[in-house]
């Protein structure tokens, strides 16, 4: 479903070229549960950003659901991100002035979906994510675990092809972190393709397929 072919990405930092991705090829099938691990600065975030269409590679091709998305313009990129990609961030990135429900519905609002339909689509998520009694609260009235649940609901409301989680437990205590991982694994069990970037081996090792990135290259791939 996701196919990266010979992807390279270089940055220029202080006049020096830094190779963040060095000829990486990777295929991810639908419904996979994949973790990307590696030391900081290894390029795992760059890999995630490229998969998430937030970053464009300098060379190589990226096929998403059989379609070449390597060189799309801003509009096509935005539309593809909106429909195919769900992001989960370490710092949740909820909008403080919106309620939990409004935060969950934000992708739909940006896509121009009518309020009634937004509500119809967010209601079952709020229910199944155990947020029913918190849906009208602002993020600063929620616990860390609840915030991340809101963020996950927001990521999956458009039924994305792939769910990308960047250190989803990095800002949570152990028990809420475990809750979040449970939730993500539950979604994966329901067929959601899941990619988790982490440097925490305990979390990374739970994935069925584990990838290790070092110096912009795939150092290890448990298979897929």
């Amino acid at each position: 479903m996701i196919e990266l072919r010979d992807i390279s990405r270089t940055f220029t930092v202080g006049g020096q070229e830094v190779r963040a991705m060095d000829h990486v090829s990777l295929a991810i099938g639908a419904g996979e549960y994949l973790s990307i691990m590696g030391p900081s600065g290894s390029g795992k975030s760059t890999l995630l950003n490229i998969i998430g269409l937030l970053d464009t590679p300098n060379s190589g091709t990226y096929m998403l659901e059989g379609r070449d998305v390597t060189s799309l313009d801003d509009k096509q990129l935005a539309a593809t991100r909106s429909k195919k990609i769900g992001f989960i961030f370490q710092f949740f990135h909820l909008i403080a002035r919106l309620t939990a429900e409004e935060n969950i519905e934000l992708p739909l609002m940006l896509a121009g979906v009518a309020a009634r339909e937004r509500h119809e689509r967010s209601a079952p998520l709020i229910d199944s994510f155990g947020l029913s009694n918190r849906q009208h609260h602002k993020p600063d009235e929620l616990s860390g675990g609840q915030r991340q649940r809101v963020a996950i609901a927001r990521a999956v409301i458009n039924r994305p092809a792939v769910l990308l989680a960047d250190e989803p437990t990095g800002n949570l205590d152990r028990s809420s972190g475990a809750e979040i991982i449970d939730l993500l694994e539950r979604l994966n069990a329901e067929g959601q393709t899941l990619v988790v970037v982490t440097h925490d081996p305990e979390i990374g090792n739970r994935a069925r397929r584990r990838i290790r990135v070092v110096d912009g290259r795939l150092a290890a791939d448990s298979g897929g």
Partner: peptide, 16 residues
Amino acid sequence: TAEIGLCKALGATQGK
């Protein structure tokens, strides 16, 4: 900044 970045990640075009 973060909010705007988020909106872009969630599928908002530059025009939007």
